[in-house]
Amino acid sequence: MYAVFKRELFSFLSSMVAYITIGVFILVSGLLLWFFPDTSLLDYGYAELSGFFSLVPYLFMFLIPAITMRSFAEERREGTYELLITKPITLWQIVTAKYLACLVLVLFALIPTTIYYYSISKLGYPEGNIDSGAVIGSYLGLFLLGAAYTSIGIFASALTKNQVIAFAISAALCAFAYLGFDYSSQIFAMQNFETTISSFGINQHYQSISRGVLDTRDLIYFVSFATLFLLFTKLAMGGKR
């Protein structure tokens, strides 16, 4: 399993796609947070990063599908998947290894953004006037959100040999998982089903963790969500063995 993980990770790092994708993510988030007046932290007037943590889930809808789209799609297109499944490794281990490799890349994309926390902390008055606990909780929420999106992306890549189609499917599923249940709940607002339906969506659990409240129900939700889509991926690839 480790060999597949290392092979997948280094194949990403040896290509320009990973660097371009992560670079675009950092560039766009930086422009939105520091230069565009409607979303600039400098115009907000408070030493906090809530604007950043509100924007990243939408940026992740494009970043993570771009990272995961090649996981299985490229293997099947180039014919290397047939060689992979002949190795003494289970299908579940292959899926998990590819998932973890993509998740490490998502973590690589998040690490440079910690400079925003340092900058806001230095710009605060007095210096260091920022709720570090809330920031740590929000980063944990982002990581869990990335884990959920990555499981969706791996699943989408298992459905097709075309990376562009895998990207489109993944982006659409991520958008629905994050926003779809909230919009659907508004339809049933008068029938008292609004809270129940919203609880199935990612947004409610992400917002809960972003407030710095670490609830085991939210952790169980994200772990269960990722596990479910990894099982879907195993089933999808199991039918193509």
Results as ranks from 00 to 15, higher is better:
M1I: 11
M1N: 12
A3L: 09
E8M: 12
S11G: 10
F12K: 08
F12C: 06
F12P: 01
L13Q: 06
S14H: 11
V17G: 14
V17I: 14
Y19P: 06
Y19G: 05
I20Y: 07
T21N: 11
I22A: 07
G23N: 10
V24F: 09
F25G: 01
I26P: 02
S29N: 12
L31Y: 10
L31V: 11
F35Q: 09
F36Q: 12
P37D: 05
T39S: 15
S40W: 00
L42T: 15
L42S: 12
Y46P: 06
A47H: 02
A47K: 00
F52G: 08
F52H: 11
Y58K: 13
M61R: 07
I64E: 01
P65G: 07
A66T: 14
I67N: 04
T68Y: 02
M69N: 02
R70H: 12
R70K: 14
F72R: 05
A73E: 04
E75S: 05
E78Y: 11
G79A: 08
E82A: 15
I85Y: 07
K87P: 09
K87F: 07
L91C: 03
W92L: 15
I94H: 01
V95Q: 04
V95A: 10
A97Y: 09
A97V: 08
A101Y: 06
C102W: 06
C102I: 07
V106Q: 01
F108Q: 05
F108A: 13
P112R: 01
Y116V: 09
Y116G: 00
S119Y: 13
S119F: 12
L123T: 02
L123S: 09
G124C: 09
P126S: 11
P126M: 12
E127P: 07
G128W: 02
G128H: 02
N129Q: 10
I130S: 05
D131Q: 09
D131P: 06
G133L: 05
I136V: 15
G137E: 03
G137D: 03
Y139K: 00
L140Q: 06
L142I: 05
L144Y: 02
A148K: 00
T150S: 10
G153A: 08
I154A: 03
I154P: 00
A158K: 07
L159K: 10
T160V: 08
I165W: 12
F167I: 02
A172W: 02
F176Q: 04
A177M: 04
Y178M: 01
L179N: 15
F181P: 05
A189Y: 14
N192L: 15
T195W: 13
T196Q: 12
I202R: 01
I202T: 06
H205A: 01
Y206L: 07
I209T: 01
I209Q: 00
V213A: 11
T216P: 06
R217G: 13
V223Q: 02
V223N: 02
F225I: 01
L228T: 15
F229M: 06
K234D: 13
L235G: 12
A236Y: 04
R241H: 10
